[in-house]
Amino acid sequence: MRADAKENYNHLLATARVVIAEDGAGASLRDIARKAGMGLATLLRHFPSREALLDALLRTSLDALIEKAHQLEASHSADHALRLWLREAVNFVRVYSGAVDMMATALADPNSALYASCKALRMAGGRLLHNAQAAGKANPGISESDLFALLGALGWLGDQAAFAERSEHLFNFIADALLTSK
């Protein structure tokens, strides 16, 4: 990719990240292009569909969450690492409204562009969970699948106006139930 094309690509991704955080996954592609100071045709050359743009955004964020899991695992106790990572993951779900559906679909389809990133994320979170369980700090009855269902549910709660004010309380309630000690 030419340097100017790579610069445009990165600028579009950065702009899309901001717009989607404000307006959700259904944000107008035309608005994203306009806010990036580019035409819609330029956006569509880089990202031929909304799904392609979301895939690129999600992949970048998923990779960052995977790296965060590694960092937390190396620098915190097993239970604290899991709690901190769960909070980061829930915040990711809140920023990318609709991401849980895309991730669940991707995990069920090995041909999906997001499959490898979603699987790696699930494995990274699962490793944190298993470490905490092995240390006797997490409920042994929780599976990786349960952890990801809770992650999606907690993110969804924060997006609902009726539950938003209770989302922090509910996060702590679920995290406390997951972890056997704080």
Rank of each mutant, 00 (worst) to 15 (best):
R2W: 05
A3Q: 14
E7D: 13
H11E: 15
L13I: 11
T15F: 01
T15V: 09
A16R: 03
A16N: 03
A21C: 08
A21I: 06
G26C: 06
D31S: 12
I32L: 06
K35C: 10
K35G: 05
G37N: 07
G39F: 08
G39E: 09
L40Q: 13
T42P: 07
L43Y: 02
L44M: 13
F47D: 12
P48G: 09
S49C: 08
R50S: 10
E51R: 15
E51G: 06
E51M: 04
L54A: 03
L54M: 14
D55F: 01
A56W: 00
A56Y: 00
R59M: 09
D63M: 07
D63C: 06
A64K: 06
A64G: 11
L65T: 08
L65Y: 03
I66A: 11
H70R: 14
L72R: 07
E73G: 14
S77R: 03
A78W: 06
A78D: 15
A78E: 15
A78M: 05
D79C: 01
H80D: 15
H80G: 04
A81V: 01
L82N: 02
L84K: 09
W85P: 00
R87N: 08
E88N: 12
A89H: 10
V90N: 05
N91Y: 02
N91D: 15
N91E: 14
F92Y: 15
V95K: 13
S97H: 12
G98L: 02
A99T: 08
V100Q: 15
D101R: 15
M103P: 04
M103R: 09
A104Q: 13
T105I: 05
T105R: 12
L107I: 08
L107G: 05
L107N: 03
L107K: 01
A108F: 03
D109Y: 05
D109M: 08
L114G: 09
L114K: 12
Y115T: 10
A116K: 10
S117R: 08
C118E: 09
K119T: 11
K119F: 15
L121H: 11
L121P: 08
R122E: 11
M123T: 15
M123Y: 11
G126P: 05
L128W: 07
L129H: 02
L129N: 06
H130D: 10
A132I: 01
A135S: 14
G136H: 06
K137Q: 13
N139D: 14
P140H: 00
S143V: 04
E144L: 07
E144H: 04
E144I: 15
D146Q: 03
D146P: 03
L147Q: 05
L147V: 04
F148N: 05
A149S: 15
L150C: 09
L151M: 11
G152Y: 07
G152C: 01
L154E: 03
W156L: 13
L157F: 02
G158Y: 00
G158C: 04
G158V: 00
D159N: 14
A161K: 12
F163N: 07
F163G: 01
F163H: 08
A164T: 09
A164H: 07
E165L: 06
E165I: 02
H169Y: 11
H169C: 01
H169S: 01
H169L: 01
L170V: 10
N172I: 00
F173A: 02
I174F: 13
I174D: 03
A175S: 12
D176I: 02
D176Q: 04
A177S: 11
L178G: 00
L178H: 01
L178A: 02
L179A: 01
T180N: 04
